[in-house]
Design a binder for these strands. Sequence first.
DNA 1: GTGGTCTAGACCACA
DNA 2: GTGGTCTAGACCACT
Lengths: 122, 122, 122, 122
Amino acid sequence: MAWTLDSDKPLYTQLMEIIQMRIISGYYQSGERLPSVRELAAEASVNPNTMQKALVELERSGLIITQRTSGRIITEDKELIHQTRKQLAEGHIQYFLQHMEELGFSRKEILSHIQTFTEGDG
Amino acid sequence: MAWTLDSDKPLYTQLMEIIQMRIISGYYQSGERLPSVRELAAEASVNPNTMQKALVELERSGLIITQRTSGRIITEDKELIHQTRKQLAEGHIQYFLQHMEELGFSRKEILSHIQTFTEGDG
Amino acid sequence: MAWTLDSDKPLYTQLMEIIQMRIISGYYQSGERLPSVRELAAEASVNPNTMQKALVELERSGLIITQRTSGRIITEDKELIHQTRKQLAEGHIQYFLQHMEELGFSRKEILSHIQTFTEGDG
Amino acid sequence: MAWTLDSDKPLYTQLMEIIQMRIISGYYQSGERLPSVRELAAEASVNPNTMQKALVELERSGLIITQRTSGRIITEDKELIHQTRKQLAEGHIQYFLQHMEELGFSRKEILSHIQTFTEGDG
DNA sequence: GTGGTCTAGACCACA
DNA sequence: GTGGTCTAGACCACT
């Protein structure tokens, strides 16, 4: 949730993902006003233009809506937020399973590995 | 396993990954001679320089070895191949679990989703 | 004719155009008193300042006239109203023809397309 | 077809439209390589970043395709080019007819006006 | 040499 | 004060 940025991916991409997670997790509530570009940029310690680009991209997904001169709000379409979460999850699952299978792991092995990991951590 | 390349990641990175997978999966056998740069480049429809760069990078990992006069061979160190496979798998698992948790899925939910997917496919 | 506003153009511009259309169409009659700024603003659900700006701009065109004490009235110059309508129409026609020709349509094609459309609708 | 820019719309929007017209009209041929961002920017006398923004937007429509480090090409999907032309034309026609009717012109009057204009010019 | 990203700093229209 | 646009100039990865 913090503004942890690395340098192997474009900043604006990472900013998008962080804000997206904040919306999905409810940190930014549906219908609420998003902090201004300048505030967000200061928070994340990036140039306002970079944050601007991230927000424009996010707008395309419909998660945030720009109101010409009165800031941006989080969509009130809770279903969209839910769908986004679901799509991200399915994407991760498919990507994961595909790559594990390419590495030659059977479904059973994958499951048992996951279980080992989850037990290990908690 | 095919030479499926997209344009949002560097070509040489993708080539590396494909060849690495071919080694791990046994498509290229331990100790065998790798096709020439020109052959591989033709196969993948890329510039030989690009394929060259991929192979040089792969050499650093030790999976392939250049022999002064007779091309490149796959390492005979089967343990290295095994280790590489294991590291890739663990990387995938950690990445996957971390992101699923960020999306707010509990360990139980993750497991059940995985099971649903694996059942769904076969 | 309704107060349908989108957010990609300035609000005051859109308000101007709507009121202008209401005058041209006779919804607001020549010589009549225009509703007060507050009423119009309430009707359109905008800030009175925004409506005010729209009216001030409209005054420049002469279609509405401010009377010191008794609000604003629609011009009694029916010829002006007529001229405005004509100018708008000619503007639309020129804009339309120019862009259709840029798209490579001949005059004949344009006419036949228009006919198809008008037949299609009624 | 020239780089005629005015200041009431964003430059990048106008650049987009000009390039789009050049593609539709065949000035830039399907499958051909587009001049580099820097060249186009110099041609149009705008900052390369501004031209870049225009091209990124155009890419979204699919009319041009970016090849990571070897420039951009015009799509080879001639059907897409054709569709784009058609959509633009229909948009213009609908916009035109709607506004003329709001001004109180009947379909017959619209047609006769168009004819007058087309005869007048050629 | 190509596109992509980022910063810094400025100006504008709008509400 | 808000978002939007634009410029100038820099650096980077890739081919």
